[in-house]
Simulated scan of single mutants.
Amino acid sequence: MGQLHVGNVDIEIDVEGFLCHAEDWNEEVAEALAAQEGIDHLGREQRDIIMFMRAYHRKFDNFPIMRYVCKNVHASTADCVTEQFCNPMVAWKIAGLPKPPNVFFNSFDGKKYFPNPFY
């Protein structure tokens, strides 16, 4: 377990950097989580992606198909999540959502990530 300092508050995160308490999330926390992942500032498309992921999780309690995310945020490509965050799990983490069980992504080049169905 670790701590993420946001403003005057310490937010509890797990060893992988996911929030321990989803109710701690807000846009300021998202920026701090992004900074931890090496993203200096969340742009509009990145914010749209994480807000869609939050809404999807709230409705279906599951991890969305990446192309579905891109379609619903009206992105110009079907790979918007990997273009904006490299690893889709980073977007999920910044969205303040719990680590989904049995969802893993692999990359052969460190630039494009694919769901691994063998976990």
Score class of each variant (00 low, 15 high):
M1H: 13
Q3A: 13
L4F: 05
H5R: 15
D10L: 15
D10T: 14
E12S: 13
D14W: 05
D14I: 05
V15Q: 15
F18W: 07
F18I: 04
F18Q: 06
L19S: 04
L19I: 10
H21T: 11
A22H: 05
E23W: 09
W25A: 02
E27Q: 08
V29C: 02
V29M: 09
E31N: 14
A32V: 13
L33F: 06
A34C: 11
Q36K: 12
G38S: 14
D40Q: 14
D40A: 14
L42Q: 02
L42P: 02
L42E: 01
G43I: 15
G43K: 13
R44E: 13
R47A: 10
R47G: 07
D48E: 08
I49C: 08
I50T: 08
M51C: 14
A55C: 04
A55I: 10
A55T: 11
Y56T: 03
R58Y: 10
K59E: 15
K59M: 08
F60E: 03
F60H: 09
F60A: 12
F60L: 12
D61E: 15
D61T: 10
F63R: 00
F63Q: 01
P64V: 08
I65S: 06
Y68F: 04
V69Y: 03
C70G: 10
K71L: 07
K71T: 14
N72A: 00
N72T: 03
H74Y: 13
A75I: 02
S76G: 15
S76A: 09
T77Q: 12
T77E: 11
A78D: 15
A78Q: 13
C80T: 06
C80Y: 05
C80F: 04
T82K: 00
T82R: 01
E83Y: 06
E83A: 06
F85D: 01
C86E: 05
C86R: 14
N87G: 04
N87F: 06
P88G: 01
M89N: 06
V90H: 01
V90K: 02
W92L: 02
W92Q: 00
K93Q: 09
I94E: 00
A95T: 02
A95G: 13
A95I: 05
G96K: 02
G96T: 03
P98W: 13
P98D: 07
P98I: 02
P100G: 03
P100C: 00
P101W: 03
N102G: 11
V103P: 02
F104C: 10
F105D: 07
F105W: 05
N106Y: 09
S107M: 03
D109Y: 05
D109N: 10
D109C: 01
G110R: 06
K111M: 07
K112M: 12
K112F: 12
Y113M: 03
F114G: 09
P115E: 09
N116C: 12
P117S: 09
F118G: 07
Y119R: 14
Y119M: 10
Y119Q: 09
